[in-house]
Amino acid sequence: MSDHPTIPPEDDDMLAAEVALGLTEGDERAAARTRMLQDRSFARRVADWQERFAPMAEDIAPVSPPKGARKALMSRLFPARRVPLMQRLWVWQGISFAALATVAFLALPLLQDPGEQAPDDVYAARMVAEDSALELLAVMDMARGDIALRRVSGTAPEGRVLELWAILPDRAPISLGVLPEGDVNRVALPADLAPEAAQITLAITDEPPGGAPGGVPTGAVMAAGAVAEL
């Protein structure tokens, strides 16, 4: 049974729109965030509204933040202590793209044990494709040297497997292996890719059982997303 009171659909939708616009404050805002972590349907409503509002900003000229602005912001917001990953996910969501409104909710199974602090270098990506139902959230933890993935929706075509690739400028796709069964997995990140972590685009193709022949992708791109630093 849900802990949330029954809300008429039209009121629920209006609340999601207000959250997407950042109009909620104080206790109402905290309650909405808590609900996003617990209620997948409501979290998706918020994400849908943020997608609808995104075109409103298309005429605004993009401005690149100064180098190191994100780390400086984190230092100001959370001085004299290391910042838990959940807090970093929320701040990162607010200053990157709107489609990751549900990032904290989706990332819950990927986080460390309660009380463990996040490492300095963490990257994340939302992996999607226009013509595929597959959607994943990836969190790349440089201290652990791996990528945690949560499958939000979609599966491999019948008789095929999902293979994860790291794509870097001027290099052939690098196979990170066939994804095991299950919605949550961890995949090792080759140590030689660590210096170029910020430039990685993660992609998933459908391949024959056993993986792509010769380590070269042959199937369709099912989902992809460039990583961004948290």
Rank of each mutant, 00 (worst) to 15 (best):
P62W: 11
P180V: 06
D192H: 10
A104R: 01
R160L: 01
P213V: 14
F97G: 09
G94L: 13
V221S: 07
G94S: 14
M14W: 09
E25W: 08
Q112D: 03
R29S: 05
A32P: 00
G94V: 07
L202Q: 12
D13V: 06
D27A: 14
L136W: 09
I174A: 02
L106I: 03
L89T: 11
P8M: 10
R160Q: 14
Q117D: 07
A43L: 01
L37G: 14
W92G: 15
E51Y: 12
A226P: 08
P8W: 04
D146E: 11
L73A: 15
P8C: 04
A143E: 04
A166W: 00
A32V: 05
A72V: 01
L162K: 00
I200G: 04
L111R: 05
M222C: 03
R45C: 00
W92E: 07
R186C: 01
A188G: 07
E158W: 03
Q199M: 11
F78N: 02
S75M: 09
E116G: 03
D27Y: 09
A203V: 11
M86D: 08
S75G: 10
A194Y: 06
F105W: 04
K71G: 05
E135V: 15
A220W: 04
R76K: 09
T34S: 13
Q117M: 14
W165N: 02
E135T: 11
V161E: 13
D12A: 13
A69V: 01
P84R: 09
M222L: 13
D48E: 11
L137M: 13
E58M: 06
E158N: 09
E163Q: 15
L134H: 03
P62D: 06
L15D: 00
V221Y: 08
E163V: 04
F97D: 15
P209T: 10
P66V: 10
L168S: 01
K71E: 11
T102E: 03
L189Q: 07
A133R: 12
V178L: 05
D183P: 11
A133C: 05
V216H: 12
R52E: 07
A220R: 14
S96D: 14
L137H: 08
R52F: 08
A57Y: 10
D3Q: 12
S75H: 09
D12M: 06
V216G: 05
A172L: 07
A30P: 02
I204C: 11
P190F: 10
V91Q: 14
E10T: 04
A223W: 00
P8K: 08
G219E: 10
R33I: 02
A16H: 02
G219C: 10
L134E: 02
P217W: 02
L137E: 03
P62N: 06
A61I: 12
D120L: 07
S175C: 08
M222P: 01
M222Y: 02
A148T: 08
P66T: 09
S41K: 07
Q50K: 15
D183T: 10
L202G: 09
D48A: 15
D13M: 08
M36D: 00
E18K: 15
T201A: 13
A133W: 06
A166F: 03
M14F: 11
S2L: 14
E25K: 09
G68S: 01
L137C: 02
L110G: 01
